[in-house]
C-alpha cells in the first residue's frame, strides 16, 4: 500500500547520507590518494584526482629510517611507541575500570552515586586547561619524556569514562545471575569473571576501543611531555611531517594513512559492539 513512499523515503535518506559522507570523507580520501602519487604529479596543474601511476614510494620511504631535512623520523619506532602507550593504558583502564565499575554497580558503600557522578566531572575540563599543571606534576614525578608517564597519564584520563560505561552496563545484568552462580558454588570473583564479564563484553569492548582510539591519537600531552626522538609517538611524527613536507605531500598522506589505519580497523570490526555498548541501558532489551 504505502510501499512506494517508503522506498522514496529510503532513497532520500540514502542520498542525504551519501552527500554528508562525501563532504566529511573527501579530505581524508584526498590525502589517501595523495599517498600513492609522485612528487611531480602532486605539483602539476590541472590537479589529477586518481594517481596516474600509483606508487608505494612514500610508504617505502616511511619505513626506511632516514634523516629528513636533519630530523630523524623513525616511523617503526613511532608506531611502536604509540602501540605500547595505547595498548598498555587500555589494559590498565580495562582492569581498573572493570573492578571499579563492578563496585559501583553492585556494592553498597556510602557516597557511591556521588563518586560515580564525580568521575564524570573530571571529563568536563578542557584538556588544554590541564596541560601546564600536568607538565609540572609529571616533571616533579620525574615522568616527563617517558612512555610510562604517558601510559599513566592516559590511564588516569581514560578511567572515569570507562568505569562509567562498564558500571552502567553491569547494572543492566540481573543480580539473580550472580546469585545463581553463588548458589552454584562460585565465589564473588568467580561469578564476576565467569558470568558477569562475558555478558558485559560489548561494554568492555566499547570501553577498550574508546580508550585505545583516544590514546592512539592523543597529541597535545604527548607533544609537551615527550622530548627525545626515540620516545615520540605517531601523532607527533605526523605533526612534524606536516611542517617538514609542505611540497612532498605524498609523505604526509602516507603517514596519515598509517596513523588512521588501526583506528579504521578497530571501528570496522568493533562497530556492532561499539553501538551496542554505548546504547546499553537506553532501552530494556
Amino acid at each position: 500500500m504505502n510501499e512506494q513512499p517508503r522506498t522514496l523515503n529510503w532513497i532520500m535518506l540514502g542520498l542525504i547520507g551519501l552527500v554528508i559522507s562525501i563532504y566529511v570523507l573527501f579530505p581524508v580520501f584526498w590525502l589517501f590518494l595523495a599517498s600513492f602519487k609522485t612528487q611531480p604529479e602532486l605539483a602539476q596543474l590541472p590537479i589529477s584526482f586518481w594517481p596516474e601511476a600509483p606508487t608505494l614510494e612514500a610508504y617505502k620511504a616511511l619505513f626506511s629510517p632516514t634523516h629528513q631535512k636533519g630530523q630523524l623520523l623513525d616511523w617503526p619506532q613511532l608506531i611502536g611507541n604509540s602501540f605500547f602507550i595505547a595498548v598498555s593504558s587500555t589494559i590498565i583502564v580495562l582492569i581498573f575500570g572493570t573492578l571499579a565499575g563492578y563496585a559501583f554497580a553492585r556494592l553498597n558503600f556510602p557516597g557511591r552515586d556521588l563518586i560515580l557522578g564525580g568521575l564524570l566531572i573530571s571529563r568536563m575540563f578542557q584538556g588544554a586547561a590541564l596541560l601546564l599543571p600536568t607538565y609540572r606534576l609529571m616533571s616533579m614525578l620525574g615522568l616527563q619524556d617517558s612512555l610510562i608517564g604517558l601510559v599513566l597519564l592516559y590511564s588516569a584520563f581514560g578511567l572515569p569514562f570507562a568505569t562509567w560505561i562498564i558500571a552502567s552496563s553491569l547494572r543492566e545484568i540481573p543480580r539473580e545471575l550472580e546469585e545463581s552462580a553463588m548458589m552454584d558454588g562460585a565465589s564473588r570473583l568467580q561469578s564476576m569473571v565467569m558470568v558477569v564479564l562475558p555478558l558485559a563484553t560489548p561494554a568492555l569492548i566499547t570501553a577498550a576501543m574508546w580508550h585505545f582510539v583516544g590514546a592512539w591519537s592523543e597529541f597535545a600531552f604527548a607533544s609537551i611531555l615527550l622530548e627525545s626522538n626515540e620516545h615520540k609517538t605517531v601523532t607527533i611524527g605526523l605533526a612534524s611531517f606536516v611542517e617538514l613536507f609542505t611540497l612532498e605531500f605524498q609523505y604526509v598522506g602516507a603517514a596519515a594513512t598509517i596513523v588512521a589505519l588501526p583506528i579504521m580497523l578497530i571501528f570496522l570490526f568493533g562497530q556492532r559492539y561499539f553501538t551496542r555498548g554505548l546504547l546499553a541501558g537506553a532501552v530494556k532489551g
Partner: peptide, 16 residues
C-alpha cells in the same frame, strides 16, 4: 552460599 549445599531456582530462572 557455596558452602551450604543448597540449590535454588529463581523466579526469572537466572540461566546464564
Amino acid at each position: 552460599p557455596k558452602e551450604r549445599d543448597i540449590a535454588m531456582v529463581f523466579q526469572n530462572y537466572a540461566l546464564y
